[in-house]
Design a protein around this nucleic acid. Structure first.
Lengths: 192, 192
DNA sequence: CGATTCTTTGAAAACAGTCAATCTGTGTGG
DNA sequence: CCACACAGATTGACTGTTTTCAAAGAATCG
């Protein structure tokens, strides 16, 4: 299972076998069943999580028990609540597996150590953070700019793979509209 | 004017006079009149910009000519289009001054150099980026979770200073609703 | 003062949310 | 292997919210 992570890193960096050995020694392997949590609101998050296989979601549960999806994390994506990790405060969010998944966890301090000891790894992480910021900004942009229909089309364009793997109501939750509205939007679009 | 930046840095870091001298030598001072651009869509952004005085906004102009505000940057905030800077691609956004403003620009390469030569400065930048990520995530959270009224109240709580300095229609633009709707929401709230 | 920008208001239309019922497909246990 | 339960999707009717357009009132600035 580490092989997948190794391959991912190999695409983005040039690390020595020693580096890989060090990284591997710090990885905690976790196999998740469908619906299994890796974070529940109230817990403090202490890891960086890399998804090798499967699909997770991070979401907020409001007072009415409704789910608001902040992020989908398919294979080769990172997930976790950075805010909780950085502040050591309990998380507002939940993360669980939409599909049976394999993930790697690296403990916060180990991760920092890796960044300090392997400059290449650090550069790679900085790159990843930059991309992440771009993604977040893009989502804000679409959320204040686009109509519901445009948001949906944009989602399909941006995450075609995810769109076909998750139920419609989760896409609705992600873009911030009700499942019924999305269903109607989609049937309207189909007519054209 | 550098004094303001120095004070800001002093609050967050412990730098030597030498460090400050180096930083100052790379700062480009810019005074802006009201409505003056520092970035227009189509340009490539190449700086980190620190606001010493005044208030800027970063926004997207849609096909109808409507403004969608991505960020307000008052004194002691950073602004700029990181995406354009990181990718060297033309920006989609505009940045201009809502109030007469004084800003400091540090050229992208100089900024990187500072991060490499002054570890304290680098740590500080990393902290700032973390906070920025939290802010972005928080905004996504509110945008998919809250009603229009709640978004407005949340804005007032989060940015009371800005709320009193910008016209209502800019707040509306920032939270992603029409100016008329916000006007009505506000008069409703007043009744209670 | 005159011009511009900002805010408010009204009325109509478009849009989205809710609730409840039905339909569909899938998978599990008997 | 069937029947049933269950999760997801769709639809209708209704309600509530938001947008749009237009016009009129404030407020601000040179």
């Amino acid at each position: 299972m580490f092989e997948i992570f190794r391959k991912y890193l190999g695409d983005k960096t040039t690390l020595s076998n020693q580096d890989y050995a060090l990284i591997e020694s710090l990885c905690i392997i976790k196999k998740l069943r469908k619906n299994q949590y890796i974070l529940q609101s109230g817990d403090v998050w202490k890891y960086d999580a890399f998804v090798c296989r499967g699909l997770l979601k991070m979401y907020y549960l409001d007072v009415k028990g409704q789910e608001h999806i902040m992020q989908f994390a398919p294979e080769n994506y990172w997930t976790g609540d950075r805010e909780s990790m950085d502040t050591d405060l309990p998380s507002k969010y939940n993360i669980d597996a939409i599909e049976p998944s394999d993930i790697l966890l690296i403990e916060k301090n180990d991760f920092e150590m890796l960044r300090k000891t392997i400059p290449e790894f650090n550069n790679f992480v900085n790159q990843t953070i930059k991309k992440n910021v771009q993604t977040l900004q893009g989502r804000i942009h679409t959320s204040i700019t686009l109509s519901s229909e445009e948001k949906y089309n944009n989602f399909l364009k941006q995450f075609p793979d995810i769109a076909s793997r998750v139920p419609l109501h989760m896409i609705a939750s992600y873009i911030g509209i009700s499942a019924e509205t999305l269903s109607r939007i989609r049937s309207q679009s189909a007519k054209k």
